[in-house]
Design a protein around this nucleic acid. Structure first.
Lengths: 147, 147
DNA sequence: TTAATTTACTATGCGTGCATAATAAAATTT
DNA sequence: AAATTTTATTATGCACGCATAGTAAATTAA
């Protein structure tokens, strides 16, 4: 049988993880992206939303929408940032803190399961290759139909 | 600095590739998923859509929507399957065949670029780890908040 | 200080993933 | 053969990625 392409492997692997994360989050009425955001928010003090995007690899526009739904679900509160009239400070509600712990367990549980089944060397190689791919793509040293 | 989690690496890598694929496809008014579908369709004879989903790792419901938009763009035609009254046979139009070649080049170009920058051993390890992750997740031998 | 630019959002639209539900045509049971 | 179950496909809704566009506040340039 034909070798699967690299993109196919990457895509199907990530889709599997996505599905699992959404199923876990779904048990508590949450979602994967909400879980990622919860983990990135400091549970003790207000987090400027400008800090969140880069930390979790989400663009401001996607983050804004996620935060809106999180606020509607009572997970966070958005308060004005006294140091920057444009900005917002994100505060976790008690419910948000509770869900944050749950989300952390799901992510850590996944990481641990992988580490139990893959050697350290293999994992390092995996991360290195993933990094190389990201850099290749971002640096445009990759197929470009404009040549 | 803290180690990035495995899910973060997987996600950001796939998102980079996704963005690049969509940019390339966008230059010709197409999309990533459309490109994947085009590549999976036999350019010579009608392809039953039941064969497409598994081949490209897309669920029937997502595929149906993609095929609908592809038909509207004139890339394919959906004809009844004479051997199965429920099914559909997908035929590429001349324009679809042309776009299929373009899509193949993008995917192959990506694969080649990665192979030029990563050793065979590293790539094999990468695929192995990706596979392990997929199997772990699919077999539920992974964190499950229901224990 | 005023004008121009940059930055931090927010809203909205599209593509594509999943889930659910509906329909019609097999295939299987009885 | 008739009834039941399964399968193929579509429609629809939600989540969330990106892109684009708009607004208000901050920063920088003149």
């Amino acid at each position: 049988m034909k070798e699967k392409t690299i993109d196919y492997i990457l895509r199907s692997t990530w889709m599997s993880v996505t599905k699992m994360y959404n199923e876990e989050a779904g048990k508590k009425g949450s979602t994967m992206a909400t879980g990622f955001a919860l983990i990135s928010i400091d549970p003790e003090e207000g987090t400027p939303s400008t800090a969140l995007g880069p930390k979790m690899g989400m663009e401001a526009t996607s983050l804004s929408r996620t935060l809106k739904s999180m606020e509607q679900k009572g997970l966070i509160e958005r308060k004005p940032n006294p140091e920057d009239g444009r900005g917002v400070l994100i505060h976790l509600t008690p419910y948000g803190k509770e869900m944050r712990e749950f989300s952390k367990q799901v992510v850590l549980g996944f990481d641990e399961a992988v580490q139990k089944n893959v050697s350290l060397e293999e994992l390092q190689t995996f991360k290195k290759v993933a990094n190389t791919i990201t850099e290749l793509v971002n640096s445009k040293k990759i197929y470009d139909s404009d040549k």
